[in-house]
Every structure is written in structure tokens, then in C-alpha cells.
Design a protein around this nucleic acid. Structure first.
Lengths: 143, 143
DNA sequence: TGATATTGTATAGCCTGCTATGCAATCGCA
DNA sequence: TGCGATTGCATAGCAGGCTATACAATATCA
């Protein structure tokens, strides 16, 4: 059985994701922000006060992963967990001023990282890559 | 600043890689093999007795990451670390019979996982995706 | 209404990444 | 030849994935 890692979609996906994460982490360093935290902020900037369950669903990670990420964000002063009198099981995840303040810089850093990664591709190729990744994700999720 | 995660190469790369890893993990479960261990085996099946430094270089992970992965593999009886009289700093990483025995099944599992992930794409699209990922990886590594 | 099922979180424990350190062995050169 | 630089690994500590558990609050329905 021949198996060339340089031609394996799974190997390449893993490698590419690690390189993306490393670049993003560098760019976020001055903002005191970690990549996974940015993803959560992306949702909360759009709609503040979401529950952990909603965030878990929207970012497609496991509930335990989200719980831990939120704990680190709370520790770092990015969010507060606000009790919900209507349902004592849940707590609304609320942005702190600090989290609102980093928005522009964080978005710019992420956009720059994407641009940097794709700078070897033309417009057409970049769109194709994104479309194909979306397709693979859908395929893998549907099972 | 608009930033759609569904159109961000970085977000998609991360998501796709997680789904790949999850699928591979499932398929490897009966083999008592973890995804990162498989990558190491891939190198050692080709050339047994490599040093940790060479493996680190070939798989493009940090030295500490490789050291830990190798420790788990040794614990799990997949490799032995053999002292090298020529250079007492290094130890050759040697496959155990157990590691050689899982080769065919592991390769088949990985190939199946790749095929499953790409089954929504035609031959042409799959090749394009792989080529574009290779290009992005090269771009990100060169800086 | 009360028992059962479901839902929302938290926690423990593991894998795989990373950075930062520290140390021993080897190399290279003045 | 000897000493400073380099190389090869190990370890500590953290982020962010995951599975498995546990538990309280809420919902459902006989």
C-alpha cells in the first residue's frame, strides 16, 4: 500500500491548519488573545449574551471544549458569565469592554493572516480552495 | 470589518482538520493507534531506526511535540529507543513487531478516511484541493 | 402531580500542539 | 588541545481538541 503523506488530504489539512494557527497566534500575541478565543469572540461580537450551548453548536466543537475555552476567557477578563433567572442551568456569556476593544485589531490580524496564507494563489484559486474545503467539511459532517 | 468564518481559509482549515482527525481516530480505535502516532509510523515503515531529530524535521512538528509522541508510542509498545554508541546524544527509533503488524490495516484505514472525505468531489476537484493545500503550506512555511 | 427524560454545564483525564528551559554530548577552531 | 558553540533530547507548563461522567434544573407526560 503506497501512502504519500504529501498527497494525503488528511495530512495536508492537519499541516495547513497548524501553520494557520501558528501564524494567527503570532499576530494575536500583542492582543493577548488565543485563536480559539477569537472564534468565540467572532460569535459574541455579532450577538452578545449567547449561551454556552449555542456557542458550542455554532463553532462545532464539543461542549467540554467550549466550557474550558470560556473558563480561560473569563480568567483573562474577556467575558463574564451572567446568571439567567429564567433558567438556572444556563448563564449568558457577555463580552467585557476589553473584549469589545480588541475587535478591530483582532479582525485585522485574522484578515491579514488569511491574505498572507493565500498570497500564492490568484483570486480564482483562493475561491476554489474555500469552496472545496466547505464541500469536504459538509461531507465529513454528514455522517 | 466583515469577517465571515464560513469564508475564512483559516477557520475552514481548522474545522476540516478537526473532522479529519475525528474520523481517523474512529477508524484507528480498534488498532489502538492515535493519529499522530500513525504519522510517525508512516516514516518508520519507510525507513526504520531514524532519530528523533529526523522525524521532527520530516513531520514538521516541534522537537518537544515529537519527544512526547515518541514517549507515548514507547509506552504503548510501538517503538523502542536504541542507544547509539557512535553518538550518545541520539537514540535510534526502532519499530516493534506490533508496529509492523498494524501497517496494512492502518494504511487502509487512512486511505478509506481520505476517500470518504473526498467522496463529494470528482477526481479533478480532489487533485485541485490537494495542489492548493500544498501551495498554501509552502507559502506559510516560507516566512 | 410525580416520576422520568432531557438539557445545560462542569470536571477529570487523555492526546497533540506549542514555547521555554536545561543539560549532556559533540563539534570546531584558535 | 581545550573551550565555546552547536546539537539532540527531556521536561515543565499551557492551549485547545476529545470522550466519559456526574449532577442539577427543566420539561414532559402518564
Amino acid at each position: 500500500m503506497e501512502f504519500a503523506k504529501t498527497h494525503s488530504a488528511g495530512f495536508l489539512a492537519n499541516h495547513m491548519a497548524r501553520l494557520f494557527a501558528a501564524g494567527l497566534q503570532q499576530r494575536f500575541k500583542e492582543l493577548d488573545l488565543a485563536p480559539a478565543q477569537f472564534m468565540v469572540l467572532l460569535e459574541l461580537w455579532e450577538e452578545d449574551g449567547l449561551t454556552q450551548a449555542v456557542l458550542t453548536d455554532r463553532l462545532d466543537v464539543e461542549q467540554a471544549t467550549m466550557a474550558n475555552t470560556l473558563s480561560r476567557m473569563q480568567r483573562d477578563g474577556l467575558i463574564d458569565r451572567i446568571a439567567n433567572p429564567k433558567d438556572k442551568r444556563t448563564r449568558g456569556i457577555k463580552l467585557t469592554p476589553k473584549a469589545r476593544e480588541v475587535r478591530q485589531k483582532a479582525l485585522a490580524a485574522a484578515a491579514t493572516q488569511n491574505a498572507e496564507a493565500l498570497k500564492g494563489l490568484n483570486e480564482q484559486e483562493a475561491e476554489t480552495l474555500i469552496a472545496l474545503m466547505q464541500k469536504v467539511i459538509l461531507t465529513l459532517k454528514r455522517r
